[in-house]
């Protein structure tokens, strides 16, 4: 199952894009309480949002974003049937992507 959930909502001429990603977002300074060792950093570095194949937003982020990150954007226009695609890459080069059609 994809780690990304996308929801869109059309609000008078605009489209709200909301996404929830399941990711630990570890910054590398937390200690594992059981073993008393540092948990290695593991966080999303780049997130891109595409509308019908064209990039509309690129987010560069550090580990300062909360665990299981949530993002919301507001698209001008947006028609039913338009495709929203979101993908991310983390510092361990893991990747995931998900597509969603505006209803």
């Amino acid at each position: 199952m994809s780690s990304i959930k996308i929801r869109t909502k059309r609000l008078d001429g605009k489209t709200q894009i909301r996404t929830l990603i399941s990711h630990p977002m570890e910054h590398g300074r937390n200690k594992d309480k059981a073993t008393n060792k540092l948990i290695p950093a593991h966080f999303i570095q780049v997130l891109t949002v595409k509308h019908n194949g064209k990039i509309i937003a690129t987010c560069d982020m550090g580990a300062g974003i909360s665990k299981d990150p949530y993002f919301a954007f507001l698209l001008k226009g947006g028609e039913p049937g338009d495709e929203i695609a979101i993908d991310w890459t983390d510092n361990l080069s893991n990747k995931d992507s998900e597509k969603h059609t505006i209803s």
Binding site: I65, P69, Y70, F71
Partner: peptide, 14 residues
């Protein structure tokens, strides 16, 4: 943000 987007963004931080 590309011009297709409104100047709006929401997220959660530490």
């Amino acid at each position: 943000l590309m011009p297709e987007l409104e100047i709006f963004m929401s997220a959660r931080l530490k």
